[in-house]
């Protein structure tokens, strides 16, 4: 009977958990390759130097079109992030090209001022309509949450799927979005001969439908790294994706650190309670 029960329990846990993430698969989706990230898995943490390089890529390339409105300049200083020195960020904010609309002032007019530490990292457009108007109708999305708002899924038969999912849960896999963005940044190519590409669009294998309005943003050498990291598209992509992953989940480092304390505490307590329970039931057959 006991065996039966544990079997039920196990299969139900597996099954219910299984159902969760089958959701977003789309037929005909390009398989997205999984990358190695410093922040992946149940022990992974962000690499400060990589986040700093990633911010440099964002600032010099992405920020031309994309905002980062849910991240404030002060966040660039806080622990668990790129941890730039505060003075450097103050200076960065003061010279940020996209100013903050504030007001009304004493004359009742709105005015633009340079951002302070507490202000968001704004993109070049004041609203979506302005963005569309200057981008031929395409909307460059805000990047604050992009690493969470995208996902990638593995295709597998229904009987394999539960095991893949169990593996992902046990490995604390949360990098579906990161892997997708990396693929998007690196899988630009010429369209196959039989593919009809709309004018002004670019062929990208990772993008659903394969045609994207964003021109290939990165090429070797566009950003000059200071720390000797090779200036290649591959490095840029990894770095900027790491940065965006932090932007979307700034508490990751703290979350995993506290997570381990909680899990270890729970395991020890469960063990103690189990032994205590055995003592209590020692003389009672059940």
């Amino acid at each position: 009977m006991k065996k039966h029960l544990s079997l039920t329990l196990l299969s139900m846990v597996a099954a219910t958990v299984a159902m969760g993430s089958l959701s977003a698969e789309e037929a005909g989706h390009q398989e997205i390759e999984r990358q190695k990230w410093s922040f992946s898995g149940f022990t992974g943490q962000f690499d400060k130097a990589q986040l700093q390089r990633g911010f440099q890529v964002y600032k010099e390339v992405c920020a031309a079109c994309h905002g980062l409105k849910r991240v404030a300049f002060r966040n660039l200083v806080q622990p668990g992030g790129p941890e730039f020195p505060e003075d450097a960020v103050k200076e960065l904010a003061a010279t940020w090209p996209n100013q903050i609309t504030d007001g009304p002032n004493d004359e009742g007019k709105m005015f633009e001022r340079p951002p302070l530490l507490s202000d968001p990292i704004r993109g070049p457009y004041h609203n979506d309509n302005e963005a569309r108007a200057s981008q031929n109708g395409a909307l460059p999305p805000d990047l604050s949450l992009i690493a969470r708002a995208r996902d990638s899924h593995r295709e597998a038969s229904w009987y394999i799927h539960p095991f893949l999912m169990l593996g992902d849960i046990l490995n604390a896999y949360q990098e579906g979005g990161a892997n997708y963005i990396y693929a998007l940044l690196t899988e630009y190519s010429d369209a196959p001969a039989d593919y009809k590409l709309t004018d002004g669009k670019y062929y990208n294998k990772a993008f659903p439908g394969h045609q994207i309005a964003m021109p290939p943003p990165l090429s070797d050498g566009v950003v000059a790294y200071q720390d000797g990291t090779p200036s290649t598209v591959d490095h840029y992509s990894h770095d900027v994706v790491a940065f965006l992953s932090w932007a979307a989940d700034p508490s990751l480092d703290q979350r995993k650190r506290i997570g381990w304390q909680v899990i270890l505490y729970l395991i020890v307590t469960t063990g103690l309670l189990y032994l205590g329970k055995k003592r209590i039931w020692k003389n009672i057959k059940h």
């Binding site: 505490y265 020890v268 307590t269 103690l272 309670l273 032994l275 205590g276 003592r279 209590i280 020692k282």
Partner: peptide, 14 residues
């Protein structure tokens, strides 16, 4: 068994 060390320890942890 109520005063058993393990039981006390378990309760203390909780």
């Amino acid at each position: 068994n109520r005063r058993d060390f393990l039981v006390v320890a378990g309760n203390a942890f909780v």
